[in-house]
Amino acid sequence: MTWSEMQPLLEQASWDTLYMVGVSTLIAVVGGLPLGVLLVLTDRGGLLQNTVLNKVLGQIVNVARSMPFIILMVALMSFTRWITGTTIGVEAAIVPLSIGAIPFFARLVETAVREVDHGLVEAVQAMGGNTWTVVRKVLVPESLPSLISSATTTVVVLIGYSAMAGTVGAGGLGDIAIRYGYERFESGLMWITVGILAVVISVIQFAGDYAARSLSRRGRGSTVPRLRLLRAAAPAAGSVTVPAAEPAAEPSKAS
């Protein structure tokens, strides 16, 4: 196979993969975020404590999450037809991809939200905030760096899942690698798809990590050296250099 033959194939497959993964990530976030938050809120000691609902949701998430994706895809076929009107093609693959990713992301959200200091929740309650305020102003913004990491992990997992979407004729990079690379012994094409996948995953992982890190280090990044300089200058210039009421203006290492 020559490059001119491969190029349109690869181009189409790349777009298919990105489209499937992009749309299903979006749906997974929209569905998984509230589900994850709800799992925390309804848990014992939560703001909306409801043990029965919590158990039911938790069980659904567990079952959906432990189901092998290829089986989920086949099992959901009638549901997929009901939603999209077809069981083959890119649109048909998006349904099981999203359904597979929602519980996965929800569990990650649950873990991230649980990490938020309960004292912050209490502080907002003491100000007169209701549960919705707590979710909107505390739980989500405070866990945002972890939520972004979770979304990144979900995207990478979805790229893995999407390799199986070829089974329902959805195309994509994984499908190319199997149909051409494996079944027709076009090892050149296979290695190129492997390369493209590796690059895509690396870029997504890097972007996600970068975003999460820069958010979690808010106020810590570039200003730290400046404060060190201030402290170094303080003994020479007297207390004038430190304008605050407290003697030590050093950033605390806590939190």
Partner: peptide, 25 residues
Amino acid sequence: GLADKAGSYPSQLSGGQKQRVGIAR
């Protein structure tokens, strides 16, 4: 007494300054 720290993040403040913010809040 923290007018000059309005744009800082809590992680940049000392314990006493954080409590002043807590009191202002």
